[in-house]
Design a protein around this nucleic acid. Structure first.
Lengths: 336, 336
DNA sequence: TTACCTCATGTTAGCGCTAACATGGAACAA
DNA sequence: TTGTTCCATGTTAGCGCTAACATGAGGTAA
């Protein structure tokens, strides 16, 4: 019965079987096979069984490339992140794909590596696959990128930020306010010499601006800002490079933990509570690691997973609120 | 000149422009436009300029779905990982996409979430998009999954392991040997009561087996094995649950660091060297975090990034060695 | 000159599938 | 009976592009 030339058990002899080969074998027309795959309820049980048997015999796998062209629906979404080897965005990708995969959508993943030209290339590459939506971290870095997306005729969701004039939809939080919240907390704690360490990407810069503005508004001197290279861990930002500083806001938890390891070497880290720390350290991201180290890391908690899920929802539902602030939370532990 | 109905600056009026619309505007045939996009050298400079102008005017973006159907080349690879929110696999995805994206390949990402049924569904979903290769972490969990891949007529690369009979190609390391290496080291250090913490996925289990076999071969009692749920961090594996144990191999660094935080609370962690630790802890993965905490984490270093890049190479080159052992390295620091 | 090549461009057919519109029979109401 | 409706299935055309094979103009060699 299934011991023909194309018996899957013996391996495939020629090209992949097509819909019409299945149809021929089942003695029906192609469209009936197509219906068995996509709307089985429309096909009589006996016919359906015959078709399903034929599909099994031939090892038929529908060709979604052809299906997409014919139906103008690719059932895919393009996802653009700066980098995936960074648990903070990986959570978002996981969240959105957990939401989209069960609905039959595939995720086409691209990385910009914080490079504007590569971002534009990746956006064009994604769009040429005609995804039904684009979800990206941040906003396009160039005018060209914005133009591409604005003309793309599909939902565009920007994440991890809250731009004033989004292209279409947003799921994120206010990075500026996060900086303000950290500065407020440090000031209330009596810290006076603030510093900021992190990258100079748009979101990191917004955190810095909120942090600086709030420090200045509180009558403190302008905080120092140490811009770290993407490849550096926070550990290169030794306290030695920030003389006199008694509080540090790191743009992400990895930098914060790296900086703490520097403090430890310098004898400036206590196992006691925040009030006992010569130098307060606040991170951003709330990695699990921050809860495991000693002293535990105080941080701005952001739900990367929720950002991903919300972004997925925004691609699926065209109505309703298109600008969703998922907020953040200042989680105080022992580091500051 | 570009102020027509379809001027991109004013937003798109109708459907996305097609090749033949560009052709009409440039006064050439579609195939010439196709050549300008794919083999510009074959087109005379003046014609090319005219076509490029028409493409710009219309905001043309090639439709790779149609192109893929016509040419039977999708320029995409399917990537299946258990989960992406795990820096260890994220490195691999980053590595392979860094290699593939510049060549015009897109990455279609799917997650199995360590679920065999979901894995099979994801494999079928990936294959229905006709990728030119599949790269996956581990091997298919079911016979059905193997069958799908074996019939897929494209390169299949299994990673993070070294199966004896791979479907096609492998880029990974020997998880059993990693377990052996850790046990050997702990025995040499004079440890006698060994334990293992981690998941019971295939690769974790292979690490366990090597670890156990080596411990037994050295005359030690069978190590204890604590199977952790995927959602738990290593911190739930308190030392209290492993009475008398003086050495622990954690299946990954996150578990190791979590376990260390438990040890700290129990007063069983020293800031001194390995020899001073009441309980030795060895991780696997070599997260940067392990270098930053105190005591620094001893670990089996695995190059997830290199695995990804090698896997990418294996999908591109059909000849040559198809089973590449990237090895691992026991990196000794202060935890054990 | 004729034959032959090269180059730039075009024509034709079809990739594998689905939308939209038939078709023909059974079931049922009036 | 004669519609009318529903159901299962089929026919036709075409999605946007590319492979493969023309075509014709110009050059070049003998």
């Amino acid at each position: 019965m299934s011991s023909e030339l194309t018996d899957p058990a013996t391996g495939p002899p020629g090209a992949a079987p097509t819909l019409s080969e299945v149809a021929k074998r089942a003695g029906v027309s192609s469209i009936t096979v197509s219906r068995v795959v996509r709307m089985p309820d429309l096909v009589a049980p006996e016919t359906r069984a015959r078709v399903e048997q034929a599909m099994r015999d031939l090892g038929y796998i529908p060709n979604l490339v052809a299906g997409a062209l014919a139906s103008a629906r690719t059932n895919s979404v393009g996802v653009l992140v700066p980098t995936i080897a960074n648990s903070i965005f990986a959570d978002t990708v996981q969240g959105l794909s957990d939401k989209l995969e069960p609905l039959g959508f595939s995720v086409i993943l691209a990385q910009s590596r914080y490079d504007a030209a590569r971002e534009d290339r990746m956006l064009a590459a994604l769009l040429s696959r005609r995804p039904e939506a684009i979800i990206m971290v941040g906003s396009p870095a160039t005018e060209e990128g914005s133009r591409l997306l604005r003309n793309a005729r599909v939902p565009i969701v920007e994440t991890w930020d809250l731009p004033a004039n989004p292209i279409d939809a947003v799921a994120g939080f206010d990075n500026y306010k996060a900086g303000v919240a950290v500065a407020k907390h440090l000031v209330a704690q009596g810290r006076a010499q603030l510093a900021f360490i992190g990258g100079d990407d748009p979101r990191g810069t917004r955190r810095w601006l909120g942090y600086r503005d709030e420090a200045l508004a509180s009558g403190l001197a302008e905080p120092r800002r140490l811009i770290l290279d993407r490849k550096d861990s926070g550990s290169v930002a030794a306290h030695a490079r920030l003389p006199g500083v008694d509080a540090v806001f790191a743009a992400n938890d990895a930098h914060a933990i790296g900086f703490m390891s520097g403090l430890r070497k310098a004898g400036l880290l206590r196992d006691g509570p925040a009030s006992a720390q010569p130098v307060a350290v606040i991170g951003l991201g709330d990695l699990e690691m921050g809860r495991l180290i000693s002293p535990t890391l105080s941080t701005i908690s952001v739900h990367g997973d929720a950002i991903g899920r919300t972004a997925a929802t925004l691609t699926l539902e065209r109505g309703g609120e298109r600008r969703i602030d998922l907020g953040f939370e200042l989680v105080l532990r022992d580091s500051g």
